[in-house]
Amino acid sequence: MLQQGVYKVINPFAVSRLLGSIKGLVLKVQRAARTVAFSKNGAAGLLALRLLFSNLPLADAARQPGTVFPVPTGIANQLFYLQRDPNSNTIIYQLNVNAAGKLNEEEPVRVFWIRYAEQGERKDLNFVQRKFAYGLSTKKLAPDKYELKFAAYDKVRFFLMKSAVDNAFHVLVTIANKQIVLTRVFLRIEGGTFWVPNVKYIEFKGWNAATREPVVERVSV
């Protein structure tokens, strides 16, 4: 005998209305994406649209007063990290190896949050953040060499490579004819709104692969 109240009859009309509402929401998001993507500032707008689903506040996307961007420490096999306005929450890009130090060739880079604004909690990216903003796609080019592309911005090519100098993996990017061993990426956002934050530039920080001197380069979006 079934326990009373455990099972309920599903109302097909209610299900139909729910599916219709979900479909309507998806269509609205798709229309917004197309509008932004083909606007006058299409590239910046599309990046902004993707970023808005990635933990930006509902109001202005300006930096919160007194924001301090900490340098992550104590993270084994960290490749580089990403920070952006409006808060100090940081995304870590970590070499994905097992206990024996063997690289996971299917997913060579692990990506996760350190939520400094929330007592330093570590947290995985959600689906949208991973697929449309901060996640990476990877392609193996040769032994110990992979091409990496950001989900939100694939105009800059990144390469995960093992160095002959220290026998360790690093992420390299070429900006202004300089090959940079990457340590930090920063997105500058100055004002704007929930739908269109004003993304000013992307800053790449690291050291020159040829001279080993510190280097910082910016790319306007």
Rank of each mutant, 00 (worst) to 15 (best):
128 V>C: 05
129 Q>G: 08
129 Q>C: 05
130 R>C: 03
130 R>M: 11
130 R>H: 10
130 R>S: 09
133 A>N: 02
133 A>T: 03
133 A>Y: 02
133 A>H: 05
134 Y>N: 06
134 Y>S: 03
135 G>Y: 07
136 L>T: 02
137 S>Q: 14
137 S>L: 10
139 K>Q: 15
139 K>V: 06
140 K>W: 01
140 K>T: 00
141 L>W: 10
141 L>D: 14
141 L>Y: 11
142 A>P: 03
142 A>Q: 12
142 A>H: 10
142 A>N: 13
143 P>W: 12
144 D>K: 14
144 D>P: 02
145 K>H: 10
145 K>E: 10
146 Y>R: 08
147 E>I: 01
147 E>V: 00
148 L>N: 11
148 L>E: 05
148 L>Y: 08
149 K>A: 14
149 K>C: 08
149 K>L: 13
149 K>M: 11
150 F>M: 13
150 F>L: 15
150 F>Q: 11
151 A>D: 09
152 A>R: 03
153 Y>P: 01
153 Y>L: 09
154 D>T: 04
154 D>F: 05
154 D>A: 14
155 K>F: 13
155 K>V: 04
155 K>I: 04
156 V>P: 08
156 V>Y: 14
161 M>S: 09
162 K>H: 10
163 S>Y: 01
164 A>D: 00
165 V>S: 13
165 V>M: 11
166 D>C: 13
167 N>L: 12
167 N>H: 15
168 A>D: 12
168 A>H: 13
168 A>T: 08
170 H>D: 01
170 H>W: 03
170 H>E: 02
171 V>L: 07
171 V>Q: 07
171 V>S: 10
172 L>F: 09
172 L>Q: 06
172 L>G: 03
173 V>Y: 05
173 V>C: 12
173 V>K: 11
174 T>R: 13
174 T>C: 08
174 T>H: 07
174 T>G: 04
175 I>F: 09
175 I>C: 09
176 A>F: 12
177 N>H: 14
177 N>G: 10
177 N>S: 15
178 K>W: 06
179 Q>D: 14
181 V>R: 15
181 V>P: 04
181 V>M: 14
181 V>N: 15
181 V>G: 10
182 L>N: 07
182 L>Q: 05
183 T>S: 15
183 T>H: 15
183 T>R: 15
184 R>G: 12
184 R>F: 10
184 R>W: 10
185 V>H: 10
185 V>I: 13
185 V>K: 13
186 F>P: 06
187 L>T: 01
187 L>M: 10
188 R>L: 13
189 I>D: 04
189 I>P: 02
189 I>V: 11
190 E>R: 12
191 G>L: 01
192 G>I: 01
192 G>M: 04
193 T>E: 05
193 T>V: 03
193 T>N: 09
194 F>C: 07
194 F>Y: 11
196 V>D: 01
196 V>S: 07
196 V>G: 03
197 P>I: 02
198 N>T: 00
198 N>K: 09
198 N>R: 05
199 V>F: 07
200 K>D: 00
202 I>N: 01
202 I>H: 04
203 E>Q: 12
203 E>S: 11
204 F>T: 00
205 K>D: 03
205 K>W: 01
205 K>A: 06
206 G>L: 02
206 G>S: 05
